[in-house]
Design a protein around this nucleic acid. Structure first.
Ligand code: FES
Ligand code: FES
Lengths: 136, 136
DNA sequence: TTACTAAAAGACCATTTTGTCTTTTATAAT
DNA sequence: ATTATAAAAGACAAAATGGTCTTTTAGTAA
């Protein structure tokens, strides 16, 4: 479904949130190992996430990544769009420049509902809601 | 949704089938122009389609691409899998090595139905069924 | 059979994605 | 203050995808 960067970002942030629930702030090495991703690449991606304000980070001893508790939950749509744009979420299934319900492509009738479901999924689920599913 | 190669292949083959309905065998130049794809790249892709046996081709004057009438319709799933593998169609939405309903990821519950719908779509629709939608 | 036509083959190049690594900067604990 | 620690920054490289072009082969029509 998603590209590698998005997958690593998703799994990484969910892992961070899950650890936060236990009061921990995991570092890149631990995160990469746990989510089965290349460590250096994971570092680069998490840096981007931090720069985008999707997650907080703290340098030095005892440092690592964490979510600010008073910030609203992060819908996974936000980070998906930021890493791979919104083609998957609003593009035409046939590859036309724009999806236009008034001038639908041959796939529109069947594809549009699927795309809507994807939209609902990524708008509804947040890093926090996903982490909770693992917490139990 | 799909990558460029798949999109060009889909649109190209559907265009070919549509022309076939009028008794024509379009050539690469015409196809590329009509589906708004890079001509040389389109040529390369259609060659692959022909080598895979998804479509027939004829060289020389009056030549071009066409579908053998006595062959069964071509489900778009076949060409999608041949160009980009089946990750999009059977992979885990969270990027785990395998989707396992008995050990589901945090996205499984919501994503699996969507993936099923995609599967149904690509298994049901064929190049021929898509072309018919334009024929009317 | 000659000339023309159109696909096949394959070399080549560009861009994007994915991944690696070194150096620098910030933080915390002592 | 010093030292250890961990993220930030950014250069670099490999692989995959996307795209271009030239030459060869096969077919058609006259
Ligand atoms: S026009 Fe193609 S999906 Fe809507
Ligand atoms: S386990 Fe992830 S989608 Fe099924």
């Amino acid at each position: 479904m998603f590209n590698k960067e998005t997958e690593y970002a998703l799994r990484g942030l969910v892992y961070i949130q899950l650890q936060n629930l236990s009061g921990r702030k995991p570092g890149v090495t631990e995160i990469a190992k746990e989510i089965d991703a290349p460590p250096f690449y994971t570092a680069k991606i998490l840096q981007r996430m931090a720069r985008n304000g999707f997650v907080e980070s703290l340098k030095g001893k005892g440092g690592g990544f964490y979510f600010e508790k008073d910030k609203p939950d992060l819908p996974i749509k936000d980070l998906i769009v930021s890493t791979e744009g919104d083609k998957k979420i609003s593009g035409c299934g046939f590859g036309l420049k724009h999806c236009d319900a008034n001038d639908p492509c041959a796939l529109h009738e069947l594809y549009a509902p699927i795309r809507d479901a994807i939209n609902t999924l990524v708008s509804t689920e947040t890093i926090q809601s996903l982490a909770k599913k693992y917490a139990k």
